[in-house]
């Protein structure tokens, strides 16, 4: 049991920080520009694929730097030549633009790298066991992922809170018109934040693509989860995004470990014998194992938060 708890904690910490890398950029973009960027997880996918391609040429370490740079440039271009153009048609058009973009990016990835996943490997220099605890081993690469994502969180926090650029970004989160009136180039800042956010998603792709899997469906798998994170955490709140990322990954990781269903509970308690005679969907509901609910829980949380507490955990204003 202790083994299960320890490793579930460690794994969910790693996965949660990866989610945070993805959602931190998204939450800034969302609260600053009001754009629900459907293509954000697609930048994560581009990061993974570009890193795979670059690492076959020059190895993993240069790819760790090059791939996020490329993704960031793509993101900035998308903002400059796409989003800014549709901005005049209103919020709906912007949303649909990113929705279509996510669709096209997936197809382009299929076009270039094929429908099956690519063999993006963990670098051999990190392919060893960091430590053994009880009977399970903890791979060094997971620790590396954790180090990278935590240090990015610290740098990001420092930049946002302590530097002048961060100050202006924070101001533009809530009052973009006022910041513009004070003489700052708000469109350029939008481009910067969009590019920067995409680059962060790219980093997540580089370090997550080889640990998880690099395939065309990877963007769609995480696409909605990151929305859950920013809504649950609260718009524009970096700490909120951190807490929500960890919360969701804890939920998902721990759910997988429990192989029980309501039926087992009813049987164990030996009350309500009529329940075991339930038929149809009710019978299905009784037999759903906790482990199966992992994929459903985040969306349940999303709907609940939006209906009950639209501000999210740490947000200042409503979604």
């Amino acid at each position: 049991m202790l083994e299960f708890v320890t490793f579930s904690l460690l794994n969910s910490l790693v996965y949660g920080m990866l989610l945070f890398l993805l959602s931190s950029g998204l939450t800034l973009i969302f609260s600053m520009m009001g754009v629900l960027n459907f293509a954000h997880a697609s930048f994560y996918m581009i990061g993974a694929y570009v890193a795979y391609q670059v690492s076959t040429w020059v190895g993993f370490w240069p790819a760790l730097l090059i791939a996020p740079g490329i993704v960031g440039i793509i993101g900035a271009l998308v903002e400059r030549y796409g989003l800014r153009k549709v901005h005049q048609y209103g919020q709906l058009a912007e949303l649909l633009f990113t929705f279509g973009l996510a669709f096209i990016i997936e197809e382009l990835v299929i076009m270039i790298w094929g429908r099956v996943g690519v063999d993006y490997k963990i670098p051999s220099s990190l392919e060893f066991t960091l430590f053994d605890l009880f009977d399970t081993s903890f791979p060094a690469y997971k620790a590396f992922m954790l180090v990278i994502s935590v240090s990015i969180f610290l740098v990001l926090y420092y930049v946002l809170v302590r530097t002048r650029v961060g100050l202006i970004i924070q101001a533009a989160l809530s009052h973009p018109e006022m910041v513009g009136a004070l003489g700052h180039d708000v469109p350029k800042m939008f481009m910067l934040v969009f590019g920067g956010g995409s680059a962060l998603a790219g980093v997540a792709g580089v370090i997550g693509g080889n640990a998880l899997i690099t395939e065309p469906a990877m963007a769609a798998q995480l696409g909605t989860i990151v929305f859950v994170v920013i809504v649950v955490g609260g718009m524009g709140s970096l700490t909120g995004a951190l807490v929500a990322s960890l919360l969701i990954s804890f939920l998902q990781t721990f759910a997988i470990g429990f192989d029980y269903s309501l039926y087992d509970l009813v049987n164990a308690m030996d009350t309500w014998p009529f329940l075991s005679e339930a038929a149809g969907p009710w019978n299905d509901l009784l037999h759903v194992k906790v482990a199966q609910t992992g994929p459903v829980l985040p969306y349940l949380l999303l709907v609940l938060v939006l209906v009950v507490r639209p501000k999210g955990l740490m947000g200042v204003r409503e979604t």
Binding site: G34, L36, Q91, L95, T224, F227, V228, V231, A279, G280, P281, N283, D284, L285, V288, Q292, T293, P295, V296, Y299, L300, L302, V303, L306, V307, P310, E318, T319
Partner: peptide
């Protein structure tokens, strides 16, 4: 946007939860 997000949550709920209810 909140409306759109709730509908997104609902569709993902069904997409990921439908397999849990094979009798329906």
């Amino acid at each position: 946007t909140p409306f759109a997000l709730i509908t997104l949550g609902i569709v993902e709920l069904f997409a990921s939860g439908a397999l849990m209810f094979p009798s329906f």
